[in-house]
């Protein structure tokens, strides 16, 4: 493998996995159970890093999308895709983890709380960005559509972040250094760093894959022009070649 992007990506994934494992080892075996939630509270060490990382990757996607529209460079298009994809996967994981945490603590799998609702919108919005990207064949058009949709979908990122401040909610406020004992802050910090590094590695690898795809696409020979659309009012069945012959 000669691509520096792929090599750095792989290294990041491995380092990130090691840090994640270390963080969870501390979180599961060294840190005490939480005073009110007991062992259930340990899901904090995966849920909060997932949330932070998802929002950060969407921020990366937003910046890449601006670069993509400004410069038209294919690299920004690939990076936007990589960041959106990692962020979307993390957001779906976030919803699942949150649901698992909510059942024993809040007494419900799901409720239309502002934080939960805006997070579900986030997953849907960026899911649509990825879907739309697959449906557009023309590279320049696809690059523009991806970037514009990413910028629009990004609006929900600050809304998710501030949802617990703007509206009355069941979800707790953002965790801070002051809101947790340092014995719990350590595993959280290590796990968050791991998640971020691992996510960055995956984003780089995905960006590389997309770059290769886009390059192949650009090198591919032009397709022959498409046939004329079928004409339903034509008794002959609308075969365009027959049509032209007459």
């Amino acid at each position: 493998m000669k691509s520096p992007l792929a090599i750095v990506g792989l290294i990041f994934v491995v380092l990130g996995m090691l840090a994640t494992a270390a963080g969870h080892w501390i979180g599961l075996f060294v840190a005490p159970p939480e005073a009110m939630m007991g062992d259930v509270g340990r899901i904090l060490y995966v849920h909060v890093p997932t949330a932070w990382a998802a929002l950060i990757f969407f921020m990366v996607a937003f910046v890449a999308a601006i670069g993509s529209l400004w410069s038209g460079w294919r690299g920004f298009d690939a990076a936007t895709t990589g960041a959106v994809e990692v962020g979307t996967v993390l957001t779906f994981l976030l919803l699942i983890q949150g649901s698992i945490w909510a059942r024993p603590t809040w007494n419900t799998w799901w409720t239309w709380d502002p934080r939960l609702t805006t997070s579900a919108v986030l997953a849907a919005a960026f899911g649509v960005v990825l879907l739309m990207r697959r449906l557009i064949d023309q590279p320049a058009k696809r690059q523009m559509a991806t970037a514009v949709a990413t910028i629009i979908a990004f609006v929900d990122v600050p809304v998710v972040y501030f949802s617990v401040k703007w509206w009355a909610s069941l979800h707790q406020q953002a965790s801070t250094r002051a809101s947790m004992d340092s014995v719990m802050g350590l595993p959280l910090g290590v796990a968050a760093l791991g998640m971020l590094v691992m996510g960055t590695g995956l984003m780089l690898l995905r960006t590389k894959v997309e770059l290769v795809r886009l390059a192949h696409e650009a090198d591919a020979p032009e397709l022959p022009p498409t046939a004329a659309p079928l004409r339903l009012d034509d008794p002959a069945g609308g075969d365009p070649t027959l049509d032209e012959a007459t």
Binding site: M37, V40, W106, Q173, M180, D181, V183
Partner: peptide
Amino acid sequence: MVKHSNEYRAPTDGMAPADLYATV
């Protein structure tokens, strides 16, 4: 539904870990 704050604390001396496991 029960609300949990963003406070995460280690159990204090008076709390037996066994009780915490029991709740789980």
